[in-house]
């Protein structure tokens, strides 16, 4: 009996998760591979992603260029590998920032209550009535272009959605005895919010975070496609689909097919992983 109970728990949980969600494991493996590609891009990519080669413009996929070249003769596979850096960097940072800002505001809103809560909730209600991309585009217009502003724009569009979900969990935590105890020993409001309440709304926070990852990558790709995100010549998947890829779709379909496939597979993997994590962590929660 004792042996069974003292088995190392995290490992048991992980393998149970893997047995219940085999597709999620495949998704995680794909994302791990992508992460390796992004980390070691300069060593893996066969060509310089920025090097123009006017002698081999529009080369179809072949032994020299596995996925072909674009209108500047740049190697598409290399641009995809380097583009994964943009996608993962923007996707991860904007999701983490957006979910965290939303969570802190949500917990604070639940803790203070009253007028503060009322005002924050009305503003949130209005902000979530805009489609994500509309909100993100407006933020780009306000903040200006550039990768850092792009991350901020996507994060700020996510924040109200995270705020709504986290606040509803925080409302339950607010009346627990440990929060009361913290207040009784004289802890200030921000200490209670950050040290006592925030760690106890981790489950909805993590679920929101994973749900954001796929959407963030899709948003970055859409904004870059529209010319409002990452700027040329930086390799970014959405950017690779704009302009020449559409104009020369008949002459060089590989220019449009592969970057789109990269976006779809990555978003799909994040979504599948996120769904499985949601089921495992918090079956009642719908995002």
């Amino acid at each position: 009996m004792w042996v069974a109970l003292s088995r190392p728990r995290p490992r048991g949980r992980l393998s149970r998760f893997a047995r219940r969600y085999p597709v999620a494991v495949a998704a995680a493996a794909f994302l791990a591979l992508l992460g390796v590609a992004a980390l070691f891009a300069p060593w893996i990519a066969p060509y310089d992603p920025l090097a123009n080669d006017y002698l081999s413009m529009f080369s179809p996929p072949g032994p020299k260029h596995w996925l072909g070249t674009d209108s500047f003769g740049r190697d598409i596979l290399s641009r995809l590998i380097f583009g994964s850096r943009t996608a993962l960097l923007v996707g991860l940072s904007s999701s983490v920032i957006g979910a965290t800002v939303g969570a802190v505001v949500g917990v604070a809103s639940a803790y203070f209550g009253g007028t503060v809560d009322l005002v924050i909730q009305r503003v949130t209600d209005i902000l979530v009535s805009f489609p994500l991309i509309v909100l993100a585009m407006a933020m780009v217009a306000i903040l200006g272009s550039g990768t850092a502003n792009l991350v901020a724009a996507i994060a700020l569009s996510f924040a109200p959605r995270a705020e709504l979900v986290v606040r509803s969990s925080a409302l339950q935590v607010r009346h627990t005895t440990y929060v009361e105890a913290a207040r009784a020993v004289g802890a200030g409001p921000w200490r209670i919010i950050l040290r006592h309440m925030l760690p106890n709304v981790m489950a909805p926070y993590l679920v929101m975070l994973t749900a954001f990852l796929g959407q963030a990558i899709l948003l970055e790709a859409s904004l870059s496609f529209l010319g409002l995100g990452v700027a040329e010549p930086t390799p970014a998947w959405g950017l690779m689909l704009s302009g020449a890829a559409v104009d020369f779709v008949q002459k060089a379909p590989w220019m449009a097919v592969f970057p789109g496939l990269a976006i779809t597979l990555t978003v799909l993997a994040f979504n599948v992983l996120g769904d499985a994590l949601r089921d495992a962590l918090d079956p009642k929660l719908r995002v």
Binding site: F225, L241, V246, P259, L268
Partner: peptide, 21 residues
């Protein structure tokens, strides 16, 4: 339906154009 959520609609648009071509 899971694939629908992950596919950017602008890419799907390009694929449709390719198919028609």
């Amino acid at each position: 339906s899971v694939a629908g959520l992950a596919t950017p609609s602008f890419w799907l648009g390009i694929l449709l154009l390719l198919f028609l071509l």
